[in-house]
């Protein structure tokens, strides 16, 4: 049967107990063969662990990590990359063509608010680019894309 001191034996060996508690453990050990045995087992194990073979990382690891430092991180940077002119202009062109097609096919009886239509269309475009988890300010940008389109 283990005693209450047993819980502190590893911390005792690691020098992590407060001084008073360490003295209590020390005083307890000579009269408790179970704790003395457990402490000796822990001590042996800690010494044996030092003999484990070392692990050497591959030489490629450094190269791979350094190469990844300039990758865009997080949604904001990925969105910025997505909205760079080379991607945005063709996408806006496609969106404009699609909006004309939608307006022509749906007709004047459409109940959709033009802003909602733009959000829906551009959300689709964003999904194509696998952008998920939009933040409120990103939705705001998408909502007003038609204003960007209207710019000369």
């Amino acid at each position: 049967m283990s005693c209450e001191i047993e819980q502190d034996l590893t911390a005792f060996l690691d020098g992590e107990l407060p001084e008073l508690r360490a003295k209590q453990v020390e005083a307890h050990l000579p009269g408790c063969p179970s704790c003395a045995g457990t402490l000796s087992l822990i001590r042996r194990t800690v010494l044996q662990l030092a003999a484990l073979p070392e692990l050497s990382p591959s030489l490629a690891l450094r190269r791979k990590v350094m190469a990844r430092l300039d990758e865009p991180s997080g949604l904001t940077e990925r969105l910025r990359a997505l909205f760079r002119p080379a991607v945005l202009m063709p996408a806006l062109g496609m969106a404009a063509a699609a909006s004309v097609a939608v307006v022509l096919s749906v007709g004047p009886e459409s109940r959709l608010d033009p802003e909602q239509m733009y959000v829906a269309m551009n959300m689709e475009m964003l999904e194509d680019f696998e952008v998920v988890g939009l933040e409120p300010e990103d939705v705001e940008v998408v909502t007003h894309l038609h204003e960007l389109e209207a710019l000369p």
Binding site: Q7, D8, L9, T10, A11, D14, E16, T38, L41, I42, R44, T45, V46, Q48, L49
Partner: peptide
């Protein structure tokens, strides 16, 4: 303290 104690004992007993 408790995590390390349990883990050290588990390793010690497996080695034993």
């Amino acid at each position: 303290k408790s995590l390390i104690h349990r883990a050290t004992l588990a390793v010690a007993r497996r080695i034993e």
